[in-house]
Simulated assay, not measured.
Amino acid sequence: MILKDFIKICEENDLTYYMYAGSLLGAIRHNGFIPWDDDLDVIMFRDDFERFKKIFIASNNDKYELLCNETNEDYFHLLAKLMLKGTKFEEPWVSQVDFHIGINMDIFVLDDLAEEGFKRNYQLKKSFWYNKLMIMSKIKLDNLPIVTKVITHAGYHILNLFRINPSTLNRKCLNFLKKYKNPNATHVFDISATAEEYPQIFRKEDFKSVTRVKFEDIEVNAPINYDYILKSLYGDYMQLPPEEDRYNHITETLDFGPYK
């Protein structure tokens, strides 16, 4: 339902989206949800995403809430969540923040990336740290190795001592990314998907157009070169993982509200 309503908004406003990550994998390998998965992922180019935010916020939607830093300054992710009002899908850290998480769909963003060399490395490293610092400024993660836990807790206290919050870091990050906006960029990256050291990088040409694929009972947009993208994310993506690697989110509270 959330996906269908999101697509309706995009189609009415000439916005382009693509299925992404596990949802793209599910569409290609399972023609819908991965059987053990519990979320939805889409991705948009920065310009479309910024337009979507403005359109949605101005609409005063009575069914959904858009969780992003513009709507809640304590929100600490660089992706957005389209959440179903009256529901809960809360992870263990929710007690540390003043916002709730409803059953939702993640909206990731593609930003232009500098060409190979010093500028690209600098852009990736700085983006990586903006992402980590936003999280560190708001929550203390306890399920980490002891050294990492001590470092992140120290970072949390230092950032809060100097009143550096997710909103401040989000503004700085977006201003930083604007410096690299380039219609002729050959590569783009998902700033919020950090894989050990760097965010996920893609060729821009792989998103130059869409192809329609089946997802449950509807057709959805996939990047034209979804095969290359899925291979870069998952390797031999048509091969099912072993059962011990089939997992979903750790949920503290799940409430379907009026949708039970």
Rank of each mutant, 00 (worst) to 15 (best):
K4M: 00
F6R: 00
I7Q: 05
K8W: 01
K8I: 10
C10Y: 03
C10L: 03
C10V: 03
E12H: 07
D14W: 07
D14P: 04
Y17H: 13
Y17C: 05
Y18D: 07
Y18Q: 04
M19R: 03
Y20F: 12
Y20N: 06
Y20W: 13
A21Y: 04
L25F: 01
G26W: 01
I28S: 00
R29V: 08
R29H: 01
R29E: 04
I34E: 08
P35R: 08
W36V: 12
F45V: 13
R46D: 10
D47V: 12
R51F: 07
R51E: 09
F52G: 00
F52H: 04
F56D: 08
N61P: 00
Y64T: 01
E65S: 12
E70W: 14
E70N: 09
N72I: 06
E73H: 15
E73S: 15
E73A: 14
H77V: 02
L79Q: 08
L84M: 10
K85V: 00
K88M: 04
F89M: 03
W93Y: 15
V94S: 13
Q96R: 04
I103S: 02
M105H: 10
D106C: 03
D106W: 01
F108N: 10
V109S: 07
V109H: 02
L110F: 12
D111I: 09
D111G: 05
D111S: 00
G117A: 04
Q123T: 00
Q123D: 02
L124I: 09
K125S: 14
K126A: 10
S127F: 00
S127Q: 03
F128G: 11
K132R: 13
L133T: 05
L133P: 00
M134D: 05
I139T: 12
L141M: 14
L141Y: 14
D142H: 15
I146D: 12
V147S: 09
K149M: 06
V150F: 12
I151F: 03
H153Q: 11
A154G: 12
A154C: 12
Y156F: 10
R163C: 07
S167R: 15
L169C: 06
N170I: 09
N175E: 10
L177N: 02
Y180G: 08
P183E: 08
T186C: 11
T186W: 08
H187Y: 13
S192T: 04
T194G: 14
T194V: 15
E196Q: 15
E196T: 15
P199V: 11
Q200P: 11
I201L: 05
F202N: 00
K204N: 01
D206P: 02
S209I: 00
V210N: 13
K214W: 06
E216F: 11
N221E: 08
P223A: 10
D227H: 06
I229R: 06
I229V: 15
I229E: 09
K231S: 14
K231D: 11
S232A: 13
Y234R: 05
Y234Q: 06
G235F: 13
Y237R: 06
L240Q: 14
P242H: 07
E243Y: 04
E244I: 14
E244G: 08
D245Y: 09
D245L: 12
D245T: 10
D245A: 10
H249P: 00
T251Y: 08
E252Y: 13
D255Y: 07
F256D: 07
Y259N: 02
Y259E: 03
K260E: 07
K260P: 02
K260A: 03
